[in-house]
Design a protein around this nucleic acid. Structure first.
Lengths: 231, 231
DNA sequence: TTCACACTTCGATCATAACCGAAATGTCTC
DNA sequence: GAGACATTTCGGTTATGATCGAAGTGTGAA
């Protein structure tokens, strides 16, 4: 019917509740085994297997075998970007249970978004970078200026090697919970990686939620003048 | 099940061939009446009506009534952006007929992408802007520098008022046919609007395809040193 | 008022695909 | 090799939703 590339196929692949649940789990950036993904989507392993095969076929995820386990991860940042773009136009979903509500609050507070930091903390950090004039807006895009480069290098973020990579360097990413932008792209990923290395943030057992440690708040306050955000 | 916003709902809304056909038609940026959208998707008016109601309900399109006609248009540039992001990860679709093939070639040559210029011509123009150092890449983002601003103002593109708008100013947009970036965002839209005003490009009867006029080639050659691209 | 037209609502049909039980395949441990 | 475990294949059931014919609503023109 339609001459453009096959969006319908890819979108209907994404538009299935169980598959979305699995894709969202993979948005954390980690590779996960089939069984765990089945659990996340609350479906039987057989059904999950069928869905995963379709997602691989469609090029959305990539499969790696380790012994009797099969691990799956997102096929790349373009896929994550498409999921983010969909999140940005998706209506908020009503919360069902108290447990859900707690999980949701944790996610809204701080989480990883594929490979960079999002949620209240992510947005606040991005705001501070802008406020301190380390990062600038060019139109609606972010640009890291000379003092920003120095500052980030000082705390050990590899800036130079990332600037060369083909991927978007300092892309803004629309936060679904805050409805405001946070820092994404390879710079956002490098910064977030460093925050983990420094022990300033750490993953919570739940899927993508993140906690800022006490030393983390000290560091963020010292380096960027951030004050501890109320939960 | 899942705590994040309701991507599944929105994606399954998008992931239906007839609805995609209608959304892609609306990517041209114009508002279209229900009947025309039904024709584009090759479905009966009843079916189209049902689909359109769902799209409105889902917030993807907006409805305006003029007398006994109802016009529909995309709800905003976020929706267009999400569709583009999906296009970027969608596999190319096999071509069916000769007529299709012609239509496809016209689209690949030059078309509007929501509100800016895409296809071979769009990518070539963006390349020229970069080559002439009017536009620069910052990481993977575009920035319009001082000489670029002057040049575009000289041919009548309203640059200042756009820089202030909340929308992305000079976003790169991945071209599905060329697999390379062209200029999007509010600057891309303003430039394209001006090209229409100048009569350098004009819409072809088919949906989104665009033709470069003879005066258009003259102007593009004079202003940006572009040579006529073979079809 | 009458007709034509654009669109919507209702109802029934039909195709698709999500789902799981049962059984098979493959891999690791003992 | 035996048994446990992760994943897949097969088959049959079932729910969902896309589709269109027929009839209804609302608008504009004659």
């Amino acid at each position: 019917m339609n001459s453009s590339p096959n969006i319908a196929e890819i979108a209907s692949l994404i538009g299935e509740p169980s598959r979305i649940a699995m894709l969202v789990s993979l948005l954390g950036g980690k590779a996960l085994p089939a069984g765990e993904l089945a659990g996340a989507a609350r479906i039987s392993p057989q059904t999950a297997s069928s869905h995963l095969a379709k997602l691989v076929e469609g090029g959305l995820i990539i499969q790696e075998s380790y012994g009797r386990h099969k691990y799956f991860r997102l096929a790349g940042s373009e896929v994550a970007h498409a999921l983010e773009a969909l999140q940005a136009i998706a209506p908020a979903k009503p919360v069902r249970s108290l447990r859900e509500s707690d999980r949701l609050k944790a996610l809204q507070y701080a989480r990883t978004c594929y490979d960079h930091l999002a949620g209240q903390v992510g947005v606040a950090l991005t705001d501070k970078l802008l406020e301190l004039k380390l990062l600038e807006k060019s139109g609606e895009e972010f640009v890291l200026n000379a003092s920003g480069k120095m500052k980030l290098q000082a705390i050990g973020v590899g800036v130079e090697e990332n600037a060369k990579s083909r991927r978007h360097f300092a892309r803004p990413c629309l936060d679904w919970s805050e409805r405001r932008h946070h820092l994404a792209g390879s710079l956002g990923a490098a910064l977030t990686r460093r925050l983990f290395e420094l022990g300033w943030i750490e993953k919570l057992p739940g899927n993508r939620a993140v906690r800022v440690t006490d030393t983390g708040w000290e560091g963020l306050s010292e380096q960027f003048g951030m004050t501890r955000l109320p939960r």
